[in-house]
């Protein structure tokens, strides 16, 4: 079957990336901000895979693997910190945690 042109995939990846970005801005709950960050990372991974595929090189996919592992690491640390925030600040709402400022 004919190869899907690179631009289309990049558009999809860009769309996904934009979605994640908006998610970070809009959501008040820290957990969902984490989720949307993951979405952004994966969108970037997708872009990499597409770029690699268009050049018949495996680099894109190797990069994607690394992106996955790093994203996993981040999420785990993020969730751990989230627990601490819940216990220390009593809430998970991003806007409430603003003791530092000025």
């Amino acid at each position: 079957m004919t190869a899907i042109p690179l631009e289309h995939v990049l558009l999809v990846a860009a769309g996904l990336f934009g979605l994640g970005l908006v998610g970070v801005l809009v959501r008040r709950n820290l957990l969902f901000m984490l989720v949307s960050v993951e979405v952004m990372l994966n969108a970037a991974g997708l872009a990499f895979v597409a770029a690699g595929a268009s050049r018949w090189q495996a680099d894109g996919q190797v990069m994607f693997l690394f992106v996955l592992t790093v994203a996993a690491a981040e999420v785990s640390v993020g969730l751990a910190l989230l627990l601490q925030v819940r216990r220390r600040l009593g809430t998970v709402d991003a806007d409430v945690a603003r003791r530092l400022g000025g």
């Binding site: 801005l25 901000m33 806007d95």
Partner: peptide
């Protein structure tokens, strides 16, 4: 501008 709110910082970054 340094409101201390996370989402303000994210908005500025974007």
């Amino acid at each position: 501008t340094q409101t201390g709110r996370l989402r303000t910082y994210a908005a500025a970054m974007v």
